[in-house]
């Protein structure tokens, strides 16, 4: 029996963002944009979706005079990611 894949994570950019955020304590917008190779506009939209679902928290502040957006994964996001990986495993087990 296949487990359902979380639709919020089953998208290229959102999955990439969450995969980065599980590996670091926090990452800023520029870092995420560079690592995912996305456009700023698209990344903003996807970050907002993850934030609304409670998967990440976003902190807007300043680094010197420049605005800086910091993102961190939440416990809900970490659990969702773990479940997503478990679901993914069940697909691969079934096909091997």
């Amino acid at each position: 029996m296949f487990k359902d894949l979380d639709p919020l994570l089953h998208s290229q950019l959102r999955l990439a963002v969450i995969s980065i955020l599980v590996s670091v304590e926090e990452a800023d917008f520029v870092y995420l944009r560079e690592k995912t190779g996305s456009t700023g506009g698209n990344l903003s939209v996807q970050l907002e979706k993850l934030n609304e679902a409670g998967y990440i928290e976003i902190e807007k502040g300043y680094s010197g005079k420049r605005p800086r957006t910091l993102c961190r994964i939440t416990e809900i996001g970490r659990n969702a990611f773990e479940q997503y990986v478990e679901a993914l495993k069940s697909y691969f087990k079934a096909t091997t």
Partner: peptide, 17 residues
């Protein structure tokens, strides 16, 4: 922003980590 196959998902997770 698009849906993925299981293989693509695994590849993204591995690459980003």
């Amino acid at each position: 922003e698009r849906n993925l196959t299981q293989n693509e998902s695994l590849e993204i997770i591995t690459r980003m980590i």
